[in-house]
Write a protein that binds this DNA or RNA. Structure first.
Lengths: 164, 164
DNA sequence: TATTGTTATACTCTATAACTATA
DNA sequence: TATAGTTATAGAGTATAACAATA
């Protein structure tokens, strides 16, 4: 073990280790790890929680609606709903108004699990993630994130500078 | 087009759309998209910029060191360095002290590109991402991220509560 | 025996294309 | 013709296993 060896730690240069990009990615990875650990005891992924929550708050929906809500492809939603159905948490009913569509709804078991187990587990995960912050700081941090996502000039319309 | 149809927008329930988890993931995705767009004109990925920066600030390193710095596997770093070498931005020299290791160094071209083109492009990307914030807010946001990553109680040591 | 770089391979995640049924 | 769901397939990204060269 020679002295000039940079040790087994990651010898990340200061410039990079303090960069917003790296910290943002690390924070997100950390939070996602915490969230996955929170739902893993139930045999689920955090994505499953999001889908269950969307159904619980918006009522039975088609798979396409759920897919759009989550920003993923409808073909991916098939397997997500498959898994939730296998767990007995949702049921595929047909939409009587349009028999092409399902009406994916929560089972009694699904609603109970979401409200009494998953919900609290996710709140606990959030608390773990935000542990370094005071309540005021948590609120401010959330506001910051909201502004980063929503308080943004619309993308340059394609085709020119445009003189309104 | 029936009136009860939730329109073509994503009908994300308020509860989810304001969640820290979703906002954090969206912010990170947004930032990464901005970063990728910034380096794409040079035929590179943002990962390449990180590797180039690490070499520039820490000097020539082995592929293993670079891999650990980036938190990825050494087999993945092979193809990253392959790409950078193809672009003429780095060169593989042998470490004379340990001929198993490379000493991956920047070429003159690589250093020039990093300092005069890539660096400014990345700073500009950061500026775009943080556009909603004032300078003070940017600094505070960065501090928040730093605390989320570093100001964290060490993980529970495996094997028990621990008396001391 | 352990480590560096390399290759081949496998696994995960996600999207695209093509199909059936409904509209 | 267009849409909802499904399946098969392909692509990107990453990791594991095994190998040669070096320590």
């Amino acid at each position: 073990m020679s002295a000039d060896s940079p040790s087994t730690d990651d010898p990340l240069p200061d410039f990079l280790s303090s960069s917003t990009s790296l910290l943002l990615n690390k924070s997100t990875d950390l939070f996602n790890d915490i969230l996955e650990s929170a739902v893993e005891p139930f045999g689920l992924r955090s994505k499953d929680f999001i889908v269950l929550t969307a159904i619980d708050s918006m009522g039975p929906q088609s798979q396409q609606q759920l897919a759009r809500t989550h920003g993923i492809d409808r073909t991916t939603m098939v397997s997500v709903v498959d898994g939730l159905e296998r767990h007995g948490l949702v049921q595929r009913a047909r939409n009587p108004d349009d028999r092409r569509k399902y009406a994916i709804g929560l089972t009694t078991e699904g609603q109970a699990l979401l409200r009494h187990k998953l919900g609290p587990a996710m709140l606990n995960a959030l608390d773990t993630f935000l542990a370094p912050f005071t309540p005021d700081e948590r609120e401010l941090f959330n506001k910051f994130l909201w502004r980063l996502v929503h308080e943004r000039a619309p993308a340059e319309p394609p085709g020119g500078a445009g003189a309104p």
